[in-house]
Design a protein around this nucleic acid. Sequence first.
DNA 1: TGAAATATTAACCTTATAGTTAAATCAAAT
DNA 2: ATTTGATTTAACTATAAGGTTAATATTTCA
Lengths: 197, 197
Amino acid sequence: MKASDIQTEDKIFEAATEVFQEKGYDGTRMHDIAQKAGTNKALLHYYFRSKDALFEAVFQKLASKLFSKFTPILSPELSLEEKLHFFFREHIEFLKENPRLPFFIINELNRKPERIQRLIRNIDFKLFYKTLSEQHGKEFEKYDITPDSLLQIMTSIAAISIFPFIGKNFSKSLWRISTKISTNISKKEKNLHPILF
Amino acid sequence: MKASDIQTEDKIFEAATEVFQEKGYDGTRMHDIAQKAGTNKALLHYYFRSKDALFEAVFQKLASKLFSKFTPILSPELSLEEKLHFFFREHIEFLKENPRLPFFIINELNRKPERIQRLIRNIDFKLFYKTLSEQHGKEFEKYDITPDSLLQIMTSIAAISIFPFIGKNFSKSLWRISTKISTNISKKEKNLHPILF
DNA sequence: TGAAATATTAACCTTATAGTTAAATCAAAT
DNA sequence: ATTTGATTTAACTATAAGGTTAATATTTCA
């Protein structure tokens, strides 16, 4: 095995990771990945057999990378409040470094809904809720949190932290304009479209 | 001009609307649209010249359809609280009927960021904030809402209402499993993956 | 070293897809 | 009914994209 072996395979994998995240499966060209990796198409097939297989490898890696960030929620050392703080701090920090990741995952889960089953199969929700209940039962009662509302609450928390990254380009543009409001004098106050968002 | 004129063009447009929303630009095949519309490819080009042109028409229609839902926010007749109620009720109702719309818009805004400029160009944010201030100035002061935090708050509101639809397939699966928790006895409490979401 | 295993390249193949064309059909007005 | 212009169809073209192959280069290790 030569020294550049793993390097080349890694280069391809990294390039694929970038391009797939950026363009999605349908928008990605094998040629583009090869170019980004500094090699040629044939090598992608040499190492990964097909576009599907390469994509699968990238997806699995990225999905577990994202989902592993949720581990601390089951940690017995943290209070509910600490977990919330931890979640927002760590998770948003992570998303800053991987801004395209949530959108990518959601997009591909939508393109191939079968994936979801495979991802979720491994979760034992009963055990999950039981564990949380044992750790935070009193807090749950205090806040009237049931299995159903827990899921709702967590969805909202996820929404607030993830959404700005999903609509990043859009938010950024809005932000840029909105900051101008404080400093700029409006030049013309004519036609306002009824578009907010 | 014959009677079936508008009908055929409309059929194509509707089919295109469905397929583009479902698969995105890259994932859409002209052939599929033609089939769904009950015609053939050549007709798509006859009426809409190119895939790009057809897509552009669909996108513009859908974008204005979505954005027009935000109009009531500037209505002088409603209080801030009424607007919030109105927003959640109407907007979520609308999303129930067009579940793929937000994802579609975000996806395509990301694929062609230039679109954002064109969409946002028409918004006079200064006037927008001024109008809202005049209508709800006291409430804004009371809640310490500034131009910046207003945008943050609206992003969070949008996030909570839109996100469940964006991650719909995923949420649905989670929900289905989570409701089982209440009724089912766990068969095996073995391997729990550290995956939450 | 030199044979075997592994890596790399360029040229080629096949299929899928956007787009075209030219002929056929149809509706309506003269 | 004939002409005219719009509509529809099927067959075709060009190209882009995924994938293959066979020849060449490089590394490893007996």
